[in-house]
Design a protein around this nucleic acid. Structure first.
Lengths: 262, 262
DNA sequence: CGGCACATTGACGTGCATCAAACCGTGTGG
DNA sequence: CCACACGGTTTGATGCACGTCAATGTGCCG
């Protein structure tokens, strides 16, 4: 057991990107006790359906939240990079259907629900920031639903890469046009609702189009504008106050009449 | 402007299904002021990308949160039934990428963010219950990601119907095996990432198999067990403490080694 | 050097999209 | 009371994006 692990700073930095916290609140967060673990790639940190009494903070590596079908097929619902709490929501819902798995060799911190809840109750503002953090995750999920439901493989893959680029850049782990995404094509396939084979072919297509270059697991986006275009990517859903693609989706379709009965 | 609308009771009932609240807290919630509107079917209540200063509570009808692509195609990310707050999360994130649309003729209440935030700060326990409510929505989103990514049309449709059955039953609007889902096949298609044509054919297949019967927009599930089986449905993700399908997804796949460095 | 995880390739099958037309119930106006 | 328009459902013909299976290539590590 450990108090005030340096990775907590990354988490606080993430919260501060969307919420304002007082020095006292920040200090309280930074002094949370934690336990550290270093799962290797493919290790399941939390099994689907398990009840936990701690939340999981990523310090290093790439971690995913996934849903598992009866036949064993997996669908990744979220990627988590250093500074992310995979399951902060487990504080208010300790049993759920998902699992958490390390995609690459990682370092994770376990923070007790009791301690986190204590903070949320003592500092209403911290509670709001936790809620807001969860809302941001949910917004990403909603966007993934849109991607899976209404875009083809090319757009889906491009969108995922755009998202990870922006998030990794903000986390200080590269730039949106050049970053390391430490996942196998099979893991990407699990996130995109595709097969590894098709992810490979799609990746090749993007390379052939000159939109993308890869060196090992480093992704280089050649022309961000074109690429974001191909991805139908608008960073608004990340809830980071980033500049929105002008007039993108606003008011495309008018509804028809709404009798007000105030 | 209206104070203490009866539909607030449904919302409080929804919160109480997952959280415990004191009488005082309940009273405070029940006395929230609101504005009422009655959108007809297809009316867009909130446009994608709009900034709002109120949250939207469904009193009657069927309402959806949706994501819109550049080409105008829509993907529904969540259905909302009476008692649901479509966008409680907008209290902590007033601008986001989604839109909200009435699928059938509905009644909705608008509750001011300021008032809701005031409650959340005054009563930490209410803040937790709001956070928990948002978490439940997020859990449903994650499940939808799984469905869209890894199940075929038949399972997806069946799963959606299972979910709506259970939710409508809990809201007192039918039973899980017999309920009204007031959406067109096109709207279902927008939720399932399919086309209306294919939804129709899939529905017919389920009827032919004897799993389902429909009368207008009333759904009758013939054999819940078989149907839930076909849907790969396990209600755990609804976070309602419902009985879980025995040993469904637990520990299907073992991970491999995790060097502990506590 | 051999083994292993991952990437890549090719041949082939299929689930769902697309397009276009017909059908059906319901409300509306002549 | 019929005609017709309208939103929604149903049907059929055709095509393609992606899945499946199976083999081969490639870099890394012991």
């Amino acid at each position: 057991m450990n108090v005030g692990h340096p990775a907590l700073e990354k988490f606080v930095a993430r919260l501060l990107r969307r919420s304002t916290l007082s020095t006292e609140e920040v200090q309280a967060l930074l002094h949370l006790p934690c336990r550290v673990a270093q799962p290797q790639a493919h290790f399941d940190i939390v099994y689907p359906g398990e009840t936990v009494n701690h939340a999981c903070l990523v310090a290093k590596g790439l971690v995913a939240r996934f849903d598992q079908m009866r036949d064993g097929k997996r669908q990744i619902a979220a990627f988590h990079i250093p500074g992310d709490m995979c399951d902060l929501h487990s504080v208010v819902a300790p049993t759920a259907g998902w699992g958490i798995s390390a995609l690459s060799p990682s370092t994770v911190l376990f923070l007790s629900h009791a301690e986190l809840r204590k903070l949320a109750i003592a500092y209403p503002n911290v509670a709001l920031s936790f809620w807001r953090d969860g809302t941001a995750d949910a917004s990403v999920l909603a966007k993934w639903v849109g991607n899976l439901g209404r875009q083809d493989a090319r757009s889906r893959l491009a969108h995922l890469l755009c998202e990870m680029g922006v998030r990794l850049e903000l986390a200080g782990l590269g730039t949106r046009t050049s970053f390391v995404l430490d996942a196998t094509q099979e893991q990407l396939a699990d996130a995109l609702g595709l097969t590894a084979v098709h992810v490979d072919r799609t990746m090749q297509a993007l390379r052939r189009e000159g939109l993308l270059a890869t060196h090992g697991r480093t992704i280089d986006v050649v022309d961000w504008q074109c690429f974001a275009e191909a991805a139908d990517f608008d960073p608004a859903y990340l809830l980071l106050g980033l500049p929105t693609r002008a007039g993108a989706t606003q008011g495309l379709k008018m509804g028809r009449g709404m009798s007000s009965a105030a």
